[in-house]
Amino acid sequence: MTNPYIPLGQKRQMRKVLAIIVLLLILIISAIIISMNVGEIRLSPWRVLQTFIGLGTADESLILFDFRLPRIVLSVLTGMGLAVSGCILQGISRNALADPGILGINAGAGLVVMLFIFFYSAPTDAPVFFLPVLALFGAGATALVIYTLAFKQAEGISPTRLVLTGVAVQAGISAAMIVMTLQLSPEDYQFVAVWMAGSVWGSNWSYVLALLPWILILVPYAMSKSSVLNTLNLGDMPAIGLGASIEKERRILLAAAVGLAGASVAVSGSIGFVGLIGPHLARQLVGSKHQYVIPVTALLGGLLLVVADTLGRWIMQPTEIPVGIVVAVIGAPYFLYLLARSRA
Rank of each mutant, 00 (worst) to 15 (best):
G259K: 01
L234F: 11
G262K: 02
G259Y: 02
L234H: 08
N233I: 02
S268D: 06
G235A: 06
S288A: 15
Y292N: 13
M237L: 13
I294W: 02
Q291Y: 07
R250F: 12
N233E: 14
L305K: 05
V293M: 09
Y292F: 15
A261Q: 03
P279Q: 10
L253G: 07
G302L: 05
S245R: 15
G269K: 12
S288C: 03
P295F: 09
L304A: 01
G301C: 10
L299F: 02
I294R: 01
S226F: 12
L303S: 02
K289H: 14
E247M: 10
A261V: 00
L242Y: 01
A263L: 03
A255D: 00
G259R: 01
S227Q: 10
K289R: 14
Q284C: 11
A263G: 08
G241Y: 10
L304C: 09
T297H: 13
G259A: 00
A255C: 07
A244L: 14
A298Y: 01
L281R: 08
G301Q: 10
G301K: 08
S268M: 05
I240F: 03
R283Y: 14
V293I: 14
N233K: 10
G259S: 02
G301R: 08
A255Y: 00
V274Y: 06
L300T: 10
L254E: 03
G275P: 07
V296I: 15
L254P: 03
L285C: 13
G269T: 13
L232H: 04
L299G: 02
E247V: 11
V293T: 13
T297V: 13
S245D: 15
P238G: 07
F273W: 15
R250Y: 09
L281N: 07
G262S: 05
G272P: 08
L229Y: 01
I294N: 00
L285E: 07
F273T: 05
P295H: 11
L299C: 13
V296T: 13
I277R: 01
D236K: 12
I246S: 05
G278I: 05
L276S: 02
L303G: 04
S264M: 03
A282F: 13
L254R: 03
A256F: 03
G269W: 04
A239G: 13
A263H: 02
P238T: 10
L234P: 07
L285Q: 09
V267L: 10
T297K: 05
L304R: 06
L254V: 02
G275Y: 08
G287W: 10
F273K: 07
K289F: 08
S227E: 07
A244V: 15
S264T: 14
R250L: 09
E249H: 14
A239E: 11
V296Y: 10
G243E: 10
Y292G: 04
S227D: 14
L285Y: 08
A255G: 11
R283S: 14
E249R: 12
S288N: 15
T231I: 14
A266R: 04
Y292I: 06
N230Q: 06
T297D: 12
P279V: 12
R283C: 14
S226Y: 09
G241E: 09
P279E: 10
L299N: 04
A263N: 00
L253N: 06
R250I: 09
I277Y: 01
L300I: 15
G241V: 06
V274Q: 05
G243N: 09
V228Q: 08
G278D: 02
P295A: 09
L229H: 05
G287I: 13
G275K: 02
A282G: 12
K289N: 15
L253V: 08
G262Y: 00
L260F: 05
G278E: 05
